[in-house]
């Protein structure tokens, strides 16, 4: 087994949720860019997507939180 001292068992220095933020931004921008040609349209669509994805995640979080609280 390679015991590389540079790589610790806790390889992610930040909470995993922080790593989802850049993905969230990239997905919204690329998705918006596949529907518009101009910057204003792309950003508008990206913000709309961001709002819907955030709402979806919050709803799922709320459901899971309620289930965990109830059980």
């Amino acid at each position: 087994m390679n015991n590389d001292p540079l790589i610790s068992p806790q390889a992610l220095p930040f909470n995993e949720l922080w790593y989802l933020l850049p993905l969230f931004i990239a997905i919204c921008l690329v998705f918006g860019a596949t529907r518009h040609e101009n910057w204003s349209g792309i950003l508008f669509h990206a913000l709309q997507n961001a709002r819907w994805i955030a709402l979806f995640v919050l709803v799922v979080f709320g459901i899971l939180y309620a289930v965990s609280w109830a059980v």
């Binding site: 087994m1 790589i7 068992p9 806790q10 390889a11 995993e16 790593y19 993905l23 990239a26």
Partner: peptide, 17 residues
């Protein structure tokens, strides 16, 4: 998997996406 821990999954997720 042992050495990289969750970084292996996160790196995979990024590259797949």
């Amino acid at each position: 998997n042992l050495r990289l821990n969750s970084a292996f999954e996160m790196g995979t997720l990024y590259t797949v996406l």
